[in-house]
Amino acid sequence: MTAATQDPPLQRTPLHALHLELGARMVPFAGYSMPVQYPAGLMAEHHHTRDAAGLFDVSHMGQLRLAGPDAAAAFETLVPVDVVDLPAGKQRYGLLLTDEGGIIDDLMFVNRGDDLFVIVNGACKVGDIAHIRERIGSRCQVVPLPDRGLLALQGPKAVHALRRLVPGVDKLVFMTGGAFAWDGGELFITRSGYTGEDGFEISVHESQAQALARALLAQPEVQPIGLGARNSLRLEAGLCLYGNDIDTGTTPVEAGLNWALQKVRRSGGARAGGFPGASRILGQLDGSVPVARKRVGLVALERVPVREHTELQDAGGRKVGEVTSGLLGPTLGKPIAMAYVEAAFASPGTRVNALVRGKPVPMEVSAMPFVPNRYYRG
Rank of each mutant, 00 (worst) to 15 (best):
L96Y: 11
H309I: 06
S267H: 11
G62P: 03
P348A: 12
G41W: 13
V306K: 07
T13G: 03
A229C: 08
Y38R: 12
R307V: 12
D286Q: 01
F200A: 01
G149R: 02
G333F: 01
H19W: 08
M363C: 14
K359Y: 04
L227M: 11
S138P: 00
V159E: 15
R214A: 07
V83R: 11
L165Y: 09
R357I: 06
G329E: 14
R139F: 05
G269K: 11
T98P: 01
V352S: 00
G168N: 09
E322F: 00
M34C: 14
Y242A: 06
E21M: 05
D57A: 13
L328N: 12
P372H: 05
F29C: 07
M26P: 07
T250I: 15
A367T: 15
L42S: 04
P146E: 10
Q223N: 04
R135L: 10
A52P: 01
G185T: 14
V361M: 06
R139I: 07
N373S: 14
V81A: 15
A158I: 04
I119C: 09
D99P: 00
P80Q: 07
K90W: 14
H48R: 09
F75S: 13
A73K: 10
L22N: 02
G329M: 12
V118F: 06
T350H: 11
A229L: 10
H309C: 08
D70I: 07
T49Q: 09
T250E: 01
D7K: 13
K125D: 01
P35A: 14
N111Y: 05
Q219K: 09
Q208P: 02
V222P: 00
S59L: 08
E302H: 06
C140L: 05
L64D: 04
R271G: 03
G333M: 05
V299A: 15
G297L: 13
K125Y: 03
R163I: 07
V36N: 13
Y32H: 14
T77W: 09
Q141C: 01
A270Y: 09
G155I: 06
E206W: 04
R280S: 04
F109I: 05
V299P: 02
L216A: 05
S279A: 14
V142S: 05
G274P: 02
P144H: 07
P348F: 11
R271P: 00
V159C: 13
L327S: 14
P39K: 13
M34R: 15
A72Q: 14
H48M: 04
G178W: 05
N258K: 11
R163K: 12
V27H: 12
F109D: 02
I103C: 00
N231Y: 07
A255C: 06
A339R: 09
R164T: 13
N353S: 13
S192R: 03
R133I: 06
G155T: 03
L145M: 15
R163W: 02
L257M: 13
C240W: 01
A315L: 14
F56T: 05
